[in-house]
Design a protein around this nucleic acid. Structure first.
Length: 610
DNA sequence: TGTGCACGCGCG
DNA sequence: AAAGCGCGCGTGCACA
C-alpha cells in the first residue's frame, strides 16, 4: 500500500510521506543511483538537543518525508552513501542526523563528545550548504541593504517571486490546531498534512536554489572559496557537536555572588529614586534632579546614559547604577545562559555561523561565546576542559594591523613587523621620536586602530582622553609617518565611489560596497582578509589532524584542549600551523597554557594558587 | 502575547 | 565634507 502523495503550491512538486513498506520501496527505487539530493530535518525546537521529528529528502520536484525516530536505516544510508547532500544551514541538519546516528548506534544521552563529533564531521563533509553559497554570492544582511540568507528570501529572489514560506504556513497551521507558535514544532502531529507538505517544500526549494547558485559560484570564481568554506564549516560543526564542559558548581556560586552584588547596588540606587537601573530615562532623571549636568544625547534624542557617560560622572547614583548594571549584565548575559544552555551532558554546544558577518568573519551564538568578558574572570572560569585535559589558547599577534600593512604595502609598518619589535611602540617612536613618553604608546595604538576602522579624530579623542586638537594632530602625523597607508585608503575609497560595487579579497571573497559608506571598504577588506587567514589556520589545523582539540574560535584566537602533560608542546604545534607570511609581512601567533579553565589566564595571581 | 526598535555592552 | 568596523544578546518600551 502506497500512501497518497501530497500536492504543494510549488509548481510540479509533490511530497511523499514514507509510512509503509511500499512507500519505502518506492523511495529506494527513486534514490537508486542518485548522486545529489537535498536533505532537511524538522525538530521540536532549535536547541542542540531538540528532538528530531522529520527527515526530508528531495530533488527539485519530489520530496520524501520520514518519521525521524522510525527510520534508522535511512539515516544510516544518508551517512554512508556516495551522494552529495544539499542543505540550507547544513551544520544544523548534520548535528540532528549525527545525534540520530549516535542513538541508533546505542550511544544514548549523553553522547560521548568525540563519537558525536565524528558522526557530524562525516555527514558535513558530504554536504553543500546553500546558505554559504548564497553568502559568497552576496554577503549583505537584510539590515544592510542586502537580502539576508533565509531560504524564503533567497527562493523569492533566485527562483522567482511568490515562493512559499513554510514558516508562515506552519504558523497559521499551529494556530488552527490551537498550539502556540513556540511549541508548534514540538507538538504538531508528525503526519499532519500541512506540516508534511511544508516540510517537504523546503528541501525542494533548497535543491532548486542550489541549481541556480552553483553556476553563479563558478562564474564568479568562487569555486575554491566555496570548497574552503565547506572545510571550515565541517570543523566547526563537529566542534559544536562536541561542545565545551561547564563547571556548573562554579557557575551557580558565581550567579549567587552576582545576585548579592546587584541587590546591594540596586538598594543604593533606589535611595536616590532609581528603581530600575536599566531605564536610561529614569537614571538621567535622577541625575538631573541631583544637579548633574548632562551633555550627550542618543541617536533618538534621549539623554545618553552609557558606561562612558556614567563613568565620567562623580556621583553616588552613577556609581551605584554602573555596579548594578555590571552585575546584572554578567548574570543575565553570560552565567545564566551558560547554566540554562548546558545540555544533559553538562556541556554548552554553541553554534557557529561560519559566514556570520558580511566580511566572512564567523559568529557564535547559543550561547555567544565570542563575547565573554575578559575583565570578570569568573565568567570564562565556568568553561573547563575534559578530564586530564588542559585549556590552550592560541592567538594571532596584531593580525589586522599586519593585514592592513600588507594591503597598503606600507613599508614603514612592514619593517617594524619584520624586525619583530613592539609595533605600537615603533609607531609612537615615529610620531614622537626616540624616548617618547610611555603614555603615547596607547595613543599610537588607537591611532592605528582608527585607521583600520576609519574612525576620525573625534572618536580617537573620546577613546583616549586627549583633546580633539591633539587627536587631529596625531592622525595627521600618522598619515605623514605612514604615507602609503594613507594613500592606499584614500585611493580605495575613491575607486569605490567612482566605480565600486564590490571589492574582492585575494581569496575572491566579494565585499559589496554600499553607496555613501564607501569608507567602510577599508575595514571590510582588512577584516575579511584577516578572517580568511584565520579560517586558513582552522583548515590547516584539521589537515594536521588536530581539529578534535578545538573548543572555540574567537576571530583571531583558537581555544583548544590538550593532554595536561603535553599542553605546552601542543600550543607550539598549533602556533606553528597558524604562523606564516603575508607577502613580506610575518604572521605570528602566541600560545598560552590556561590550564584548568578558560578563565585562568584572566585571574589575578592571588586566585590562581587558591 | 508577540514583535520590532532603541539602547546598552561584551568581544575581536 | 565627514564617517568606528564586525558581531550576539539583554532590558525597556511602544504598538499591534
Amino acid at each position: 500500500m502506497r500512501t497518497a502523495p501530497i500536492s504543494t503550491p510549488v509548481d510540479g512538486a509533490f511530497v511523499h510521506p514514507v509510512r509503509t513498506d511500499d512507500d519505502l520501496a518506492a523511495f529506494h527505487r527513486w534514490m537508486d543511483c542518485r548522486h545529489i539530493i537535498a536533505v532537511d530535518t524538522e525538530t521540536s525546537g532549535l536547541s542542540f538537543q531538540a528532538e528530531a521529528r522529520l527527515i526530508q529528502v528531495s530533488d527539485a520536484t519530489a520530496a520524501w518525508v520520514f518519521d525521524a525516530q522510525r527510520h534508522p536505516l535511512v539515516v544510516d544510508e544518508l551517512a554512508n552513501g556516495e551522494f552529495t547532500m544539499i542543505c540550507h544551514n547544513a551544520a544544523f541538519d548534520a548535528i540532528v542526523l549525527g545525534r540520530l546516528l549516535a542513538d541508533y548506534h546505542g550511544e544514548g544521552l549523553p553522547y560521548p563528545p568525540v563519537v558525536l563529533g565524528r558522526e557530524v564531521e562525516n555527514l558535513m563533509s558530504r554536504m553543500i550548504d546553500t546558505q554559504v553559497l548564497a553568502h559568497l554570492v552576496d554577503p549583505r544582511p537584510k539590515e544592510d541593504g542586502g537580502r539576508g540568507h533565509a531560504l524564503k528570501v533567497l527562493a523569492d529572489h533566485y527562483l522567482g517571486a511568490g515562493s512559499v514560506d513554510s514558516q508562515d504556513a506552519l504558523k497559521v497551521r499551529f494556530r488552527e490546531l490551537g498550539i502556540s507558535a513556540k511549541d508548534g514544532f514540538a507538538e504538531v502531529p508528525i503526519w499532519d498534512e500541512v506540516y508534511v507538505r511544508y516540510s517537504g517544500v523546503d528541501p525542494i526549494l533548497t535543491f532548486r536554489l542550489y541549481e541556480v547558485l552553483a553556476p553563479m559560484v563558478d562564474e564568479l570564481g568562487l569555486t575554491k572559496l566555496a570548497a574552503f568554506e565547506q572545510e571550515v564549516a565541517t570543523v566547526c560543526a563537529a566542534m559544536t557537536a562536541r561542545g565545551i564542559r561547564v563547571d556548573l558548581d562554579h557557575a551557580r556560586a558565581t550567579l549567587a555572588h552576582l545576585a548579592e552584588e546587584r541587590v546591594a547596588a540596586e538598594r543604593e540606587a533606589s535611595i536616590y529614586g532609581v528603581h530600575n537601573v536599566h531605564s536610561p530615562a529614569q537614571v538621567a532623571e535622577a541625575l538631573l534632579v541631583r544637579g548633574v549636568e548632562l551633555t550627550e544625547r542618543t541617536e533618538a534624542g534621549a539623554w545618553k546614559m552609557d558606561k562612558a557617560v556614567l563613568s565620567g560622572i562623580d556621583d553616588p547614583v552613577a556609581r551605584a547604577v554602573q555596579k548594578a548594571k555590571a552585575a546584572s549584565k554578567a548574570a543575565s548575559s553570560w552565567i545564566t545562559p551558560l547554566i540554562e544552555q548546558a545540555e544533559v551532558d553538562g556541556r554548552v554546544h554553541a553554534r557557529v555561523r561560519t559566514v556570520g558577518a558580511r566580511t566572512g568573519r564567523m559568529s557564535v551564538h547559543g550561547p555567544g561565546l565570542q563575547q565573554l568578558p575578559t575583565t570578570d574572570w569568573r565568567v570564562r572560569r565556568c568553561l573547563v576542559p575534559d578530564e586530564w585535559q588542559s585549556i590552550v589558547l592560541c592567538d594571532y599577534n596584531q593580525l589586522e594591523p599586519r593585514v592592513i600593512a600588507y594591503l597598503a604595502d606600507e613599508q614603514n609598518l612592514i619593517t617594524a613587523f619584520r624586525d619583530g619589535v613592539d609595533v605600537y611602540s615603533a609607531i609612537a617612536e615615529r610620531l614622537y621620536g626616540v624616548g617618547f613618553p610611555t603614555e603615547k604608546r596607547a595613543l599610537a595604538k588607537q591611532a592605528l586602530l582608527a585607521k583600520i576602522y576609519q574612525a576620525g579624530p573625534k572618536r580617537l579623542a573620546a577613546q583616549t582622553g586627549v583633546t580633539e586638537v591633539v587627536a587631529t594632530q596625531t592622525m595627521n602625523a600618522f598619515d605623514r609617518a605612514y604615507p602609503r597607508l594613507a594613500r592606499w585608503s584614500k585611493r580605495l575609497i575613491e575607486t569605490c565611489k567612482f566605480n565600486g560595487q564590490v571589492v574582492t579579497t585575494a581569496s575572491g571573497r566579494r565585499l559589496p560596497v554600499t553607496r555613501g559608506t564607501e569608507y567602510r571598504a577599508v575595514n571590510h577588506l582588512t577584516q575579511a582578509t584577516a578572517a580568511d587567514i584565520f579560517k586558513g589556520s582552522i583548515v590547516n589545523l584539521a589537515r594536521a589532524g588536530h581539529a578534535e582539540r578545538l573548543l572555540m574560535v574567537v576571530h583571531d584566537e583558537l581555544v583548544l584542549q590538550a593532554d595536561e602533560q603535553v599542553a605546552g608542546e601542543f600550543g607550539e604545534i598549533v602556533t606553528d600551523v597558524m604562523s606564516g607570511v603575508l607577502g613580506e609581512v610575518p604572521i605570528s601567533a602566541l600560545a598560552k597554557v590556561a590550564g584548568p579553565s578558560w578563565g585562568h589566564p584572566y585571574m589575578p595571581v592571588e586566585f590562581v594558587n587558591a
